[in-house]
Design a protein around this nucleic acid. Structure first.
Length: 556
RNA sequence: GGUCCUAUGGUCAAGCGGUUAAGACACCGCCCUUUCACGGCGGUAACCCGGGUUCGAUUCCCGGUAGGAUCACCA
């Protein structure tokens, strides 16, 4: 077989060579040790927590080393394309403070960054492979493939085109190929694999140093995998090898679902004579399945928390999600964070070697706990803005209350609410995420104020009314916190409640209850609930009119 | 089924041949306290099983078991 002729027959339009391309995209001019990473999403527009997890690793590796992080759209499967996907991807990541240095979003010197626009580049490499006898056209139809598969399954053999199953296509003569081409038969280009059998008949293994998993070894590839689809567009495997080489990627971060195709990629790099990057195969994010009690991969359909939109619509602060992700990524991050509460996340010495190769369970509790601390570190004014942004997305009807002082509320009001109890050396950590925050502070807005709990058991209805009446009678909005509470204490004592809970605990028979029960009644009247931050401070925020109105409402 | 990965409390995890087996979240109790939260103190709770190697295995090796991943002209 004249491979030179075959190559020319198959790719008459390709005139360049791999060497030309290598010259066209020379090694990047970066400092020693700088890492070049990339994110390669398919443009379905759906971007989930797993993507963010990976992108975060990419971004940290690149930027911690003074390298480059770029975006490449892997749209070799035209069926998947969704309009506006690039915008969705970049804006989703931007929300979490992850930005690309170059790529599909902003261009750069190593493009094009859409695989669909790189057909000529791939074909240049394929043509070279054909020319060297390392790849060949295959005219097997879907039916042929199905038949082979059925036979293999019946024989309990590995499925695929390899060994003797590849022979027919591999041994096609130039004339047969020409003939097929003339008939307009559809074909793919397959790699002519060297197989994985040693001369002595044993299986040959590949050994790869994975930056997360350490030494990994598995049987070398023996499949004549498809490298160029009938459309002339490469499969993922081939595109990965060509692109990551030409774009001078130093570290490929991808999910462990790719681990099994590593032998293919290694063989492809070998045949192409190119240096493979360092691989970093990340663990899959897991979740405990309620039904089976087993760990399972987070699923797009069953688990809303996989979607990044979930965090946006729930109102999680991006920083909280990031910090949570970092605790999963590098477990010593929590310790570091405790020692460096003020230091930006970017200063943490992240490393792939500290990553765990087992799949971590997604832990919402932990995220919430981290979120409390993160929100505490954000000034109330800024938090008000964040909450307003969240409301615009998830609860648009709240936006006027947060932004418009004419509603009787507005941004200053909201800021005061959010800052409640956060000063001092033992600040409250009530705020977790948007939806939860509004549940927590809703009573500050008359439209959402509702008395939803009942008075303590040991306070009679008559006493409750009496407490409120006396409280309203003596209410002076300018009282300081001490004066204010003295009045409550006076009401309590006067009505037969202990001034101190301890007195009541010691001699419960002497009292109806204690001052805490009395203030609970007030709390219920003003806040609509029995649990809340300091009543006096809340009243100061509510203002005199609103406070009194709520008290009166219960007395009529 | 083949191949590969993984295996420490409910969860995330330190550990890397000799430890009273860290820590964090969650949970429980106590203290602080007008409620709640915060904070402080304390507590329950773990090395998958079986063989080796070794004076000694959570740690190393082999086997099992379990869970996960993957076996496309999808990425």
């Amino acid at each position: 077989m004249d491979n030179q002729k075959l190559a020319q027959l198959l790719f008459p339009a390709i005139t360049g060579t791999p060497e030309d391309l290598q010259r066209q995209f020379p090694p990047r001019d970066l400092p020693e040790g700088a890492k070049v990473t990339r994110m390669g999403p398919s443009p379905t527009g759906f971007i989930h927590l797993g993507n963010l997890y990976g992108a975060f690793v990419d971004e940290r590796m690149a930027h911690l080393s003074g390298g480059t992080f770029y975006l490449r759209i892997e749209d070799t499967d035209d069926k998947r394309y969704v309009e506006g996907a690039v915008e969705t991807i970049t804006s989703s990541l931007a929300f979490f403070g992850i930005g690309f240095d170059e790529g599909a979003c902003s261009d750069g010197a190593y493009g094009p960054y859409f695989q669909s626009q790189r057909a000529e580049i791939y074909q240049t490499f394929v043509k070279d492979l054909v020319r060297r006898g390392l790849a060949y056209p295959c005219f097997l139809t879907e039916e042929d493939l199905a038949r082979i598969r059925a036979e293999q399954e019946a024989n309990k053999e590995t499925t695929g085109i390899y060994g003797r199953y590849a022979e027919k296509s591999r041994s096609l003569t130039l004339e047969e190929i020409e003939d097929n081409l003339r008939q307009g038969k559809s074909y793919v280009i397959r790699l002519r694999s060297s197989g994985n059998t040693e001369p002595d008949g044993s299986v040959r293994y590949i050994h790869v140093k994975d930056a997360i998993r350490g030494d990994v070894s598995m049987p070398a590839n023996d499949q004549d995998v498809v490298i160029l689809k009938a459309t002339g567009i490469p499969t993922y495997h081939f595109a990965h090898v060509v692109d990551d080489y030409l774009m001078r990627t130093t570290h490929v971060v991808r999910g462990e679902e790719w681990l099994m195709s590593l032998p293919i990629h290694i063989e492809l790099f070998e045949k192409l004579g190119l240096e493979p990057p360092v691989y970093c195969h990340t663990a899959v994010l897991m979740k405990l399945d309620e039904e089976t009690g087993n760990k399972r991969k987070l699923s797009k359909r069953k688990d809303p928390e996989l979607s990044l939109d979930y965090y946006r619509s729930e109102g999680y602060h991006p920083q909280a999600v990031k910090e949570y992700l970092m605790t999963i990524l590098n477990s010593d991050f929590e310790e570091w964070r405790a020692a460096n509460p003020e230091t930006p996340l970017e200063d943490f010495p992240f490393s792939t070697e500290k990553m765990n190769s087992a799949g971590a369970l997604f832990d919402l509790n932990k995220l919430n706990d981290i979120s409390k601390d993160v929100l505490l570190g954000i000034p109330a004014r800024e938090l008000a803005g964040f909450l307003t942004d969240w409301a615009a997305l998830a609860r648009p009807e709240l936006v006027p209350l947060f932004t418009d002082a004419d509603t009787g509320y507005g941004p200053d009001y909201l800021t005061k609410i959010l800052d409640l109890g956060r000063s001092g050396n033992k600040p409250r950590k009530d705020l977790i995420y948007g939806r939860q925050i509004f549940d927590f502070i809703g009573y500050f807005f008359d439209e959402y104020f509702r008395v939803e709990e009942t008075i303590p058991e040991n306070v009679s209805d008559e006493d409750a009314r009496e407490i409120l009446r006396r409280y309203l009678d003596t209410y002076d909005h300018s009282d300081d916190q001490g004066q204010w509470f003295d009045k409550i204490r006076a009401i309590a004592v006067d009505m037969g409640y202990a001034a101190k809970p301890k007195d009541y605990k010691k001699h419960p028979e002497d009292y109806k209850g204690h001052v805490g029960h009395v203030s609970t009644v007030i709390r219920l009247a003003v806040m609509g609930r029995t649990q809340s931050p300091d009543v006096w401070e809340i009243q100061q925020i509510l203002g005199e009119d609103r406070t009194k109105a709520r008290l009166r409402a219960l007395l009529v």
